[in-house]
Amino acid sequence: MDEHGERQFAEYFAAKRDSVRRTAYLLCGDWHRADDLAQTAFVALHRRWHKIRDRDATDAYLRKTLIRASIDESRRPWRREQQTERLPEPEPTGVRLDEQVATRADLMAGLREVPPKQRAVLVLRYFEGLDVAGVAKVLGCSEGNVKSQTARGLAHLRTALGEEVETHG
């Protein structure tokens, strides 16, 4: 890759690394694994950077690579072990700290109970804000599959949380 391409990639990486890392964390529930997943996605993007003609499609390619890496990683036998996690430091908001931590901890614990593909659909729909068509495109499946995976994922999450899960969108 030429110097101009390297500079463009470095700028893109700097702009996107934190959001990709957060998305990876939502997918796997572990900051160290999230770093690995984000790195895998960015390395794959770097390999193809010179072939990308439509720079508007770069986010979609990166997101798809991240989701696939997460699903592939979850299929490895050693990933079926139970892990305990430490929560990241929450950002200050108007919500009481103990309520915010409890909500985040409950959600992350619930997401870990959802199967990987369903978790990917939920993260893309409700945390990344993609519509059904966008999720279908990222995952390379039909919109009907996205809808059924969303319904099943929400059912798993409701069971894991032991309460009704609100979905806006």
Rank of each mutant, 00 (worst) to 15 (best):
M1W: 15
Q8A: 13
F9I: 11
A10C: 07
E11V: 02
A14I: 06
A14P: 04
A15H: 15
K16F: 07
R21T: 12
R22Y: 14
R22C: 02
T23M: 13
A24F: 15
L26D: 11
L26E: 10
L27Y: 13
C28V: 14
L45E: 10
H46M: 08
R48Y: 08
D54C: 01
T58R: 05
D59A: 00
A60K: 10
L62A: 08
T65C: 06
I71D: 10
D72I: 00
E81K: 11
Q82S: 14
T84Q: 14
L87N: 07
P88Y: 14
P90N: 09
P90S: 00
P92M: 12
L97N: 09
L107T: 06
G110V: 03
G110Q: 05
L111I: 04
R112G: 00
E113I: 00
K117G: 00
Q118P: 00
V123H: 04
E128W: 14
E128F: 12
E128Y: 13
G129N: 03
G129C: 02
K137M: 05
V138T: 12
V138M: 02
S142N: 12
V146E: 11
K147C: 01
T150R: 13
T150G: 01
G153M: 05
G153N: 04
H156K: 13
H156T: 01
T159M: 02
T159K: 02
V165D: 08
E166C: 05
T167H: 09
